[in-house]
Design a protein around this nucleic acid. Structure first.
Lengths: 242, 242
DNA sequence: ATGCCGAATGCTGTATACAGAACTCAGCAT
DNA sequence: ATGCTGAGTTCTGTATACAGCATTCGGCAT
């Protein structure tokens, strides 16, 4: 956690196969470089290091990250499937250009998926976490806050909300989509820009769950997303005829 | 089209950069090898060449395909993001194991997404294609047919149904998911196995669209998916306590 | 001055090389 | 016979090399 104490430099370690200490009880994280690269890129994206549409020089970026082109390219291909970067034959990779319409498209998808996730969650688990959801919602009831803060809180809250969803694939898709959405948001509203919030929306959802009214909760969740989206959309440049 | 006239051998051409005939009016398809490899693998998967959970020897497979390891690995990474293959640090790639639960999970997602796509389609376009949808549904009204045939028809029909969906991202996701679903299906019911169909379901959807009743059409679409899923599920090995 | 053409350069797409991890299996102790 | 150990093999993960495309920039004709 504690984001911000890590500078931009190369990825944690360009060492190849870090020798594992056999007797160590602490299993140190040994993931493929491509994933570390991916995470680092996503983090840098979050900090606005890259702009949408920006083309990527593989050798240069690889050098900056302290890895060779191969893992970088592998990360790129993974990110491409996630819609974060685009590639064109002979022109290499570029960070995907963002647009209002795509933001709307993505939001619509996330709404459908989160709604599905909630609907198919275990009801027992839902009523179990409902009090906590309500408590957290009340604890963070500011009428407005920096976008970055909202985002972190929101993610945590929604993650808790969907923690009862047994559909692994669905959870993964939602996470991936949110990543992309966040990117769009950050492009449009700076990380520290103050945004309004509808603090009671989360409370409302939690209340529905407490009452055991799942349908109503789903409706409230959709409303929450829609209004959240509109709050972002509001800050947009004059309509792009999307 | 005309699937089946292409044998298993190496991908079309392992030549590197095929020299382009300058004056030719016919722009020959020049996609990155990784994509050609991906398509070839998907096709071979469709023919049951690989079994779920099967681990992949990169050098061997690359040799069979007539390409080097690099584009093969790139294809693998792309397929991994699509859920077709899995990877584990140090153990390379494996074709993702299939399970009843995941089949259900995937189906639920596709239902949600296709439903969304239909709901957000342009109504004008929908009523325009409704007659064609109805005609095609009536033309293919056999009560049962080989699974492979059903699949092809079904894909075409649903593609037409969703042709009015402007949400590009959504369309892509649906296509990708269907690919995966087909894989699951083929694992479970052979390509030539005769399956029952509910021929009238498509007619029903089309009829709703003709009547301009979108909500009803969405409901019918969901019912169509559900019953189709159950027809497949029926053929499954004794319940795996999913 | 402006537009077209060709050499030069930079970068991508693919192949190959290499280092280190996981797996295998024979040999040994129990 | 069974379980452990360690050398050997195989294969992955990453780096580097190479070939061809795309772009750029200067020269020339108009």
């Amino acid at each position: 956690m504690t984001p911000g104490d890590r500078s931009w430099g190369p990825v944690a370690r360009p060492v190849r196969y870090r020798p594992r200490k056999k007797g160590s009880p602490m299993a140190i994280e040994r993931r493929p470089l491509r994933e570390q690269v991916k995470d680092e890129l996503l983090e840098q994206l979050g900090r606005g290091r890259f702009t949408p549409g920006e083309s990527i020089n593989e050798v240069q970026l690889a050098e900056e990250l302290g890895v060779s082109r191969t893992p970088l390219r592998e990360a790129m291909i993974s990110l491409e499937r996630e819609g974060i970067v685009t590639s064109e034959r002979g022109k290499g990779f570029r960070f995907a250009p963002t647009g209002k319409q795509e933001f709307l498209d993505l939001t619509a998808i996330v709404i459908a998926l989160e709604s599905l996730a909630l609907r198919t969650s275990d009801p027992a688990h839902l009523s179990e976490i409902a009090p906590r959801l309500l408590a957290e919602a009340r604890a963070f009831s500011a009428a407005q806050a920096p976008h970055g803060t909202i985002e972190r809180y929101d993610d945590a809250w929604h993650a808790l909300l969907l923690s009862g969803c047994a559909n692994t694939r669905l959870r993964e898709m939602i996470d991936s989509l949110k990543l992309t959405l966040h990117r769009y948001e950050r492009v449009v509203v700076g990380d520290h820009e103050i945004l309004e919030r509808a603090a009671e929306e989360h409370e409302r959802i939690a209340q529905c769950l407490l009452d055991g009214d799942l349908d109503q909760a789903v409706t409230a969740l959709e409303a929450n997303w829609t209004s959240g989206m509109e709050r972002i959309l509001h800050r947009l440049p004059p309509v792009t005829t999307g």
